[in-house]
Design a protein around this nucleic acid. Structure first.
Length: 823
RNA sequence: GCCGGCGUGGCGGAAUUGGUAGACGCAGUGGACUCAAAAUCCACCGGUAGCAAUACCUUUCCGGUUCAAGUCCGGACGCCGGUACCA
């Protein structure tokens, strides 16, 4: 019977669907294993990156199932977001219609690949059954002070009268009307992730199952720094300007100050001075520049003198105050002391505006010319009583001095900013807030949740705070006083939905609290999370934050969402990332149709290790297809032996069979070990080697029952090992081989520790590091005997003639290295 | 600029963590089967010299440590990813 991938795939997919084969429930008698791939945004059709992600996850889930774990492997849709709205604007389809259509298409594709998902747990984030809980969490966060409103800047297009996402800004211009965009300050909702900065940082040490580079990236992203806040008095005023510095040791080298253009003190600093006009013009120009442009890499450092001076509390020196584009209002205090001698940026700025440079740290006190800022440690000078100290010691002493004198205090700062979640968009989760002219900001009562996204928003208005134009939505009653009130018309960032979906999967039907603590605690944390490296900082940090918030609100008990993380590489074709714009996209449907789901999945795992980028190659796919067909033919041709219940007597088997058994068990051992380490590519290559050997075997030599039993044992193991990679083919073969059990539920084959033992070892002989011979020795041969054999080996002997042996090193059963001298 | 990562045949990639460099697959070459082709099966397949045995070279480049380096250390070059000028 020929290998017919279409019929086989369909047969098993139907069976899995009908029987809910991968449905799981909590079972305390088994060890749980929660395997999760990052859920997709339903953008239209599946791309190869998805196939790769889910092929990896499915191999893990199926393998762990066979290893006896109670495996939770769910799937869902991250279905709120900008592309649905863009489609609405462009094609006039309702975002909901567009989204659900895409979900149906993609679900069909996923099912055609035969992944072992528990479809009874499917979650779709744009449905009220999902987002109502998000609204509840938001309200609880608001009550705890974790959600708050503040003014914050956004990209604003004055022509379209709308907020733009960073990706909608192209070269500082609006992507739709190509007009310049400006920075605008508006009131927005924030989640206080900064409250958890220290815990998020400390937690990284516990995440030993995460890639080191993701932990490093998050650490840098959180960016803890220890420094000092110091108050500088303004000359001719009783006002003080507070700055933050991580380098108090350089404070005697301050020659000017820089403050952000948005700094609240700026207008009073320049008021009535000769510079006032210039400052106002500068601030206005900064406002007219987009956020992106202003903070662009390698951007020009510029600023203007405010006309005011500050007094350095340590030496009473007067220094000019500038406003500069590179000082950011939302980090530290929005003001910095500038030390050009010891800070690169300040150095450039001082050179440009001819501000004096004063050195306070020297490496070598001899006259060193300064061509750039000296940022290293050294000896203190020009720093009053701190002269002569090492700068690292001075850093501490000066900080203490500042605190003692009341000039300021030591503080810890984080780069991590609070998470702005307001979006002036339609296709998102409504923020459950009501504004009442009498009662102010009021939360929607729990029993009135969900605040359902109205379906009748005008598509033409989408992109321009659309909810504000749906009167039936906006106008409501105040839950407190009953008077007329207005709803919040902003929706939440879609990163909010993806911050807790993994918890919802544990109890997707819960209608009491959103998260059923008992079930959540059984399954969480996720044992293996799999997804792209691009989510290293944003999604993965938000999810960690949310997890801790949910824990503190009593919804779950664990501290982190996922114990192990695998970051998979991109799918590349012809040297660049597969993308529609480059026209190098390979359609998964075509591959499934031509070669079958098993081949498509196996190639994804075989072509490269999971963390690395995968180079797509049509011919390579054929290689995997050939392998699967080779296994099929081999079994199909020998079914009469394989189906027969032969008994194995290890005393009876021939030396040929002993060799085969040795190879089989070694293969089981290696495949198992590599699967535990996600070495899918090497696992598959070991199976290929086994199959290559089986093709060389002369079946006619299998005369004894025990030899046939060994042959049969090999196929049993091979087919079971194939399950995580090519489940349809493996299940079909298992059935053909006369088994009436489900291969996917069978126990993973175990290797026989006796069978993997070799009775001979190959010892490699090196002379002065060069390979000069190989000898086969029985296991257990003494070092002396190996040496004797090696020194008598012809190929070795001739390299030793006339030379003095200086050193001989023996690595048991592996290598003998001889070091000689002389010619 | 800063941070993180990578560099092995014509190509994707292996290499027991310092111990035979190039497993496995693709492409290629030769053969078997076939009227022929496809499919399939078998063999070869880093470079130079040689009929051959073999010798020398070879993991981006230069240097170091070691009996032994793709692997460790120092430097250079190249590529990829992240990026919020973080005081």
């Amino acid at each position: 019977m020929d290998y017919d991938h279409k019929t086989i795939s369909l047969k098993w997919q139907k069976k899995w669907e009908k029987e809910h084969s991968f449905k799981v429930t909590e079972d305390n008698s088994k060890k749980k294993y929660y395997c999760l791939e990052m859920f997709p945004y339903p953008s239209g059709k599946l791309h190869m990156g998805h196939v790769r992600n889910y092929a990896i996850g499915d191999a893990v889930a199926r393998y762990k199932t066979m290893r006896g774990f109670n495996v939770l492997h769910p799937f869902g849709w991250d279905s709120f977001g900008l592309p649905a709205e863009n489609a609405a604007i462009k094609h006039g389809v309702h975002p909901a219609e567009w989204t659900y259509k895409n979900i149906d298409t993609m679900r069909g594709q996923i099912k055609a690949l035969g992944f072992a998902y528990d479809w009874d747990r499917e979650v779709t984030t744009c449905r009220p059954e999902y987002y109502r809980w998000e609204q509840l969490f938001f309200i609880k966060m608001y009550e705890k002070g974790l959600a708050y409103k503040k003014k914050s800047s956004v990209n604003w297009c004055e022509t379209c009268n709308t907020v733009l996402a960073n990706e909608q800004v192209q070269d500082g211009k609006c992507w739709r009307c190509s007009k310049n965009i400006i920075t605008k300050e508006i009131e927005q909702w924030f989640l206080r992730i900064s409250d958890y900065a220290q815990e998020l940082l400390d937690g990284l040490d516990t995440l030993t199952g995460w890639p080191e580079r993701v932990r490093t990236m998050q650490k840098n992203w959180i960016g803890r720094s220890e420094g000092v806040e110091v108050d500088f008095t303004i000359k001719n005023s009783d006002k003080k300007l507070r700055i933050y510095t991580t380098r108090p040791d350089t404070i005697y080298g301050v020659t000017f100050m820089s403050i952000a253009p948005e700094h609240p003190m700026l207008s009073s600093l320049c008021k009535g001075t000769a510079q006032e006009k210039e400052v106002i013009a500068f601030v206005d120009r900064m406002r007219r520049t987009s956020k992106i442009e202003r903070t662009a890499e390698g951007g020009l450092k510029e600023g203007v003198f405010t006309g005011s001076y500050a007094i350095n509390p340590l030496n009473n020196q007067e220094v000019p105050i500038y406003t500069a584009n590179f000082v950011l209002m939302d980090y530290g205090t929005g003001a910095v002391m500038a030390v050009p001698a010891h800070d690169t940026r300040d150095f450039d700025f001082a050179k440009k505006y001819k501000i004096p440079v004063k050195r306070v740290i020297f490496k070598d006190p001899a006259n060193e010319e300064l061509n750039s800022a000296y940022t290293e440690l050294g000896t203190m000078v020009n720093s009053a009583e701190f002269d002569g100290l090492n700068s690292d010691v001075a850093m501490l002493k000066i900080a203490e001095h500042i605190e003692k004198k009341g000039f300021g205090k030591r503080t810890v700062n984080y780069r991590l900013k609070d998470w702005g979640i307001s979006r002036q968009r339609y296709w998102g989760c409504p923020i459950p807030i009501i504004y009442c002219s009498k009662c102010g900001v009021v939360t929607v009562p729990e029993k009135e949740l969900p605040v359902v996204l109205p379906e009748d928003a005008k598509l033409s208005a989408i992109g321009d705070d659309p909810l504000s134009k749906v009167e039936s939505f906006v106008n409501t009653k105040c839950p407190k006083c009953g008077g007329s009130a207005k709803r919040e018309t902003e929706t939440m960032d879609t990163f909010v939905e993806s911050s807790w979906y993994y918890a919802r999967y544990t109890c997707p039907d819960d209608d009491k609290n959103g998260i059923d603590k008992k079930r959540a605690d059984y399954w969480l944390p996720v044992d293996q999370y799999i997804g792209g490296i691009e989510h290293a900082c944003m999604h993965l940090l938000y999810a960690r934050f949310f997890h801790k918030v949910l824990r503190d609100m009593g919804y779950l008990s664990s501290n982190e969402p996922a114990t192990n993380l695998l970051t998979q590489g991109m799918v590349i074709k012809d040297g660049s990332k597969m993308s529609k714009s480059l026209g190098n996209v390979v359609d998964p449907d075509y591959i499934i149709e031509k070669y079958g789901a098993d081949t498509a999945r196996m190639f994804m795992l075989f072509a490269s290790p999971p963390e690395k980028d995968l180079d797509w190659n049509d011919k390579g796919v054929e290689g995997c297809h050939r392998f699967i067909s080779r296994v099929w033919r081999l079994i199909d041709n020998n079914l009469d032996i394989i189906k027969h219940p032969y008994k194995m007597d290890l005393q009876e088997i021939s030396s040929e069979s002993k060799k085969l058994r040795n190879l089989t068990h070694k293969t089981i051992k290696k495949v198992t070990e590599d699967l535990d380490a996600f070495g899918f590519n090497t696992s598959i290559s070991f199976m290929m080697e086994l199959v290559n050997e089986l093709y060389k075997l002369d079946i006619n030599t299998l005369s004894k029952e025990s030899d046939k039993a060994v042959f049969k044992e090999t196929f049993n193991a091979l087919v079971l090992m194939l399950c995580p990679f090519a489940p349809h083919t493996a299940c079909e073969l298992w059935e053909l081989m006369g088994n009436n059990t489900d291969a996917a539920k069978e126990a993973w084959p175990a290797f026989d520790t006796e069978a993997v033992k070799d009775d001979k070892k190959l010892v490699v002989i090196q002379v002065n590091g060069k390979l000069r011979g190989k000898i086969e020795v029985p296991v257990g041969t003494s070092e002396e005997n190996v040496k004797d054999m090696a020194f008598n080996e012809e190929s070795v002997k001739k390299h030793l003639e006339g030379k003095e042996v200086k050193k001989v090193i023996y690595v048991e059963g592996k290598l003998l290295s001889i070091a000689v001298s002389g010619n």
